[in-house]
Design a protein around this nucleic acid. Structure first.
Length: 440
RNA sequence: GGAGAGAUGCCGGAGAGGUCGAACGGGGCCGACUCGAAAUCGGCUGUGCGGCUUAAACCGCACCGGGGGUUCGAAUCCCUCUCUCUCCGCCA
């Protein structure tokens, strides 16, 4: 969420920035709601002030019985008027709030302006794109051929966009998770967290998943709750159920919801392995095969909570921490700065890491590292107390470090051998119990 | 799932319809004393919103787990939700 006063005082900036993000905003509506709110608020407060003053007089011992009676009578009317105005105030505030909660974050000024991914800017590349003297196979062929990935049985159990890892395929997934966590904990100074994988409405709101992205989340209710609710859609604040986390960012950012941290606690560096659950609504044609787009996948997430002046440096750091995973694995990748139209709702600036897939002969996203500035902090109420002065909102950053399923796919494709086997990247061998090759 | 207890400021802990933004204690900050420190003494110690303002000061409103209600007036009464604790049951 943006600061109300900031929006009021920078209407043109907010208009331009939201248009750059391909987001439509009726700022005239904002202006009138904001003005109306302040008008009603002033009147309500005036009435309350009168009520408070007179009530104080009523309570005094030295007042005549007669006077007290007439004062109470008068206040009855004032109180009734205040009550109806308060109702109006609540209505206006809720409309204004509905408006505020769908405004996306403001992009940083060095974010390239553009409509869609075609305007993204490549920042740097790393690694050699591997050459094969045979036709490289896709991971969705390699996996089943090696009997380490099983898409058919997964589909029978759960439908499309699921996978079963088997044998060394399961081991490799776990090896990647452990390798990534160890790297971030031991070398990059992150604290490992195991959060809940089911979270509340408020938690999803805090990190900005709701209300804009709620259709992509799985929402869990018990049968009794569904029956209670009948056909009524869940569109109020009182969602009784829980959401399956779409990314570890959600529980990690919300770890300190409604808290004021001490400045010397910052920056907070958190990492967590979590499964991620996404409905992938509206992606029917895309990535039908393989591990690229699943309803459930594993991810190691990185989150930093910093003071406002430190967050831009922190974004570079966090991105480099995610890059280190790819470098150690020896996978070629590039870093892309997302343009305004491609930024997610809460982000002010995002670097995507894209890894090389030899079979598709292109780079595919494997990590997304964002600085959300104070946008999530304002929604989630995360503040810190500076050494001196008033408490302020923190800045929050998040990034994948990395998406495990996609990493596994990239390893299979980039490390495949002419005989159909796959070499295990050197850094993973200890995590594979010494296994150096996955052969049929 | 059943029974009971509770949720107050940075922490502990009063409060039980009006003078409570909240006693008292602790912590923290400032000052005095001291060569310095401890002890002692004095003062200060939340947030949000609105008005005024260059800003501060100042004024007003709100906030005692969340929401709603009763009342001229609520931390205090009523309803409801959430969470915590104790006991019982069930369970990985």
């Amino acid at each position: 969420m943006l600061d109300l006063r900031f929006v009021r005082e920078h209407l043109d900036l907010v208009r331009r920035k939201t248009e750059e993000r391909q987001s439509e905003l009726d700022l005239d509506l904002f202006v009138s709601l904001d003005a109306r709110r302040r008008d009603v608020l002033a009147r309500v407060e005036q009435l309350r002030r009168e009520r408070n003053e007179v009530s104080k007089r009523i309570s005094r011992k030295d007042i005549e019985q007669q006077d007290r009676k007439s004062l109470i009578d008068r206040m009855r009317a004032v109180s009734a008027e205040a009550k109806s105005l308060e109702k109006e105030l609540r209505a206006v505030e809720s409309q204004l709030d509905d408006f505020m909660r769908v405004i996306p974050n403001l992009s940083h000024d060095d974010v390239p302006v553009g409509k869609d991914e075609r305007s993204n800017v490549e920042v740097r590349r790393w690694g050699e794109i591997p050459e094969f003297d045979f036709e490289p196979r896709a991971h969705w062929d390699l996996g089943p051929a090696l009997d380490i990935l099983d898409f058919e049985r997964a589909a029978r159990m759960s439908g499309s966009r699921f996978v079963v890892n088997k044998g060394l395929g399961a081991r490799l997934e776990r090896a990647l998770i452990n390798f990534m966590l160890d790297l971030h904990v031991n070398e990059h100074g992150y604290r490992e967290i195991i959060p809940p994988f089911l979270v509340s409405y408020e938690t999803c709101f805090g990190s900005g998943q709701i209300p804009k992205l709620e259709d992509d989340m799985y929402y869990c209710l018990g049968p009794a709750q569904i029956a209670d609710r009948g056909d009524e859609p869940f569109r109020s604040e009182e969602w009784p159920g829980l959401f399956l986390v779409p990314t570890g960012e959600v529980p990690l950012v919300n770890l300190f919801r409604e808290e004021t941290l001490e400045e010397d606690q910052l920056p907070l560096n958190l990492t967590a392995y979590t499964p991620c659950f996404r409905r992938e609504a509206g992606t029917y044609g895309k990535d039908q095969r393989g591990l690229i787009r699943l309803h459930q996948f594993n991810k190691v997430e990185l989150v930093k909570i910093t003071t406002p002046d430190a967050s831009w440096d922190a974004l570079e750091q966090l991105t480099s921490h995610a890059e280190t995973v790819l470098r150690r694995l020896g996978l070629a990748y590039r870093v892309v700065s997302l343009c305004t139209g491609d930024l997610t709702f809460a982000s002010a600036k995002t670097y995507d890491l894209e890894v090389w897939f030899p079979c598709q002969k292109r780079f595919r996203e494997i990590s997304s590292c964002s600085n959300c500035t104070d946008f999530q902090a304002r929604r989630a109420g995360i503040r810190y107390r500076p050494k001196s002065g008033k408490s302020r909102l923190v800045h929050t950053l998040n990034g994948s470090g990395l998406a495990v399923g996609r990493t596994l796919a990239a390893v299979l494709e980039n490390y495949q051998q002419p005989d159909g086997s796959v070499k295990v990247p050197e850094v993973l061998v200890p995590y594979m119990g010494g296994v150096e090759t996955i052969a049929p």
